[in-house]
């Protein structure tokens, strides 16, 4: 549970953000993060803590930088040409942008689910087994089988696919594909799951299933979810952060953000005047 506490013994930070950016037992602490695409600044001086086993939503109008900020946590921005990240992001006492850090174990620790379901063009089984295989998490076939089964069960997909594990993952429906992607992410035992608008390509029924799943997963993982649906943020998350034009405007408990926003821009967005 998040506790309001301004007496954080961290370094001095300057932030214009309204609300409490700190948490009690932070899993990730990000300080003064700036992101540039070539010479265009996409994220401007954002600082935010994420505690373990919480679900936090990043909301804001499109182009506000929420996805870019999300991709900083598992260094997916590295794959984009001309993208530069400044500031520091610390995960379990380690600066993830330190030159000595290898992204492989980092990304194994931080799973990610994307906007559009993107299963590999392989069988359902191979999709889930891929991560454990490359990381060497299973030493026998039985272990691998059980990881696949448990991951699919945790993703709520097992009953639907247990009879056709060898059929291609791309043959599933959109919602099933997205749950397959979630199963694939949790198969490598991450501690944090990043979700980049995971339901934006899905119909309402599939969305409901995924939201329920996120709720379940929140008990075991820290989940950072980017969404442009305020209802979704309200439904699934404990905390909400509002981004605007690359800045973190306001952060707080979801209930508080949606009922009594402190900032005018946040209020304008919540009430539908901008977006």
């Amino acid at each position: 549970m998040v506790i309001m506490n301004y007496n954080n013994n961290n370094m001095d930070i300057e932030t214009k953000t309204i609300g409490n950016i700190f948490t009690e037992n932070p899993k990730i602490t990000s300080r003064n993060v700036n992101v540039f695409y070539h010479d265009k600044q996409a994220i401007n001086n954002v600082s935010l803590d994420i505690s373990s086993k919480e679900i936090i939503s990043l909301i804001g109008p499109s182009g506000c930088g929420k996805s870019t900020f999300l991709r900083c946590f598992n260094r997916m921005n590295d794959t984009i040409d001309g993208c530069k990240v400044e500031g520091n992001i610390v995960l379990d006492d380690q600066d993830i942008y330190h030159p000595s850090v290898d992204v492989v174990p980092l990304r194994a620790k931080i799973g990610m689910v994307f906007q559009k379901p993107n299963p590999f063009p392989k069988s359902i089984y191979d999709n889930v087994a891929y991560g454990p295989k490359i990381h060497g998490l299973a030493s026998t076939k039985d272990e691998l089988d059980s990881i696949v089964e448990l991951s699919l069960k945790n993703a709520g997909l097992w009953n639907e696919v247990k009879d056709r594990l060898q059929s291609p993952g791309t043959g599933l429906s959109g919602g099933q594909q997205q749950r397959l992607c979630i199963a694939r992410a949790i198969a490598v035992s991450p501690e944090i799951i990043l979700m980049d608008e995971p339901c934006s390509a899905l119909d309402p029924i599939a969305t409901a299933k995924i939201e329920e799943l996120i709720h379940q997963l929140g008990k075991n993982y820290s989940i950072v979810i980017v969404t442009h649906s305020m209802q979704q943020a309200a439904r699934v998350s404990q905390r909400t952060a509002y981004f605007h034009l690359g800045e973190l405007i306001e952060v707080g408990l979801t209930k508080q953000i949606f009922t009594t926003p402190q900032d005018k821009q946040t209020e304008a967005y919540i009430s539908g005047r901008i977006g």
Binding site: M76, V103, V104, R107, A108, G111, F114, N118, I134, V188
Partner: peptide, 21 residues
Amino acid sequence: QSIRDAGYALGSTKNEVVLQV
């Protein structure tokens, strides 16, 4: 690109993404 992203997000090296995905 989305398939590549999926591979990298799972912590694959380039080698693994290229050869296995």
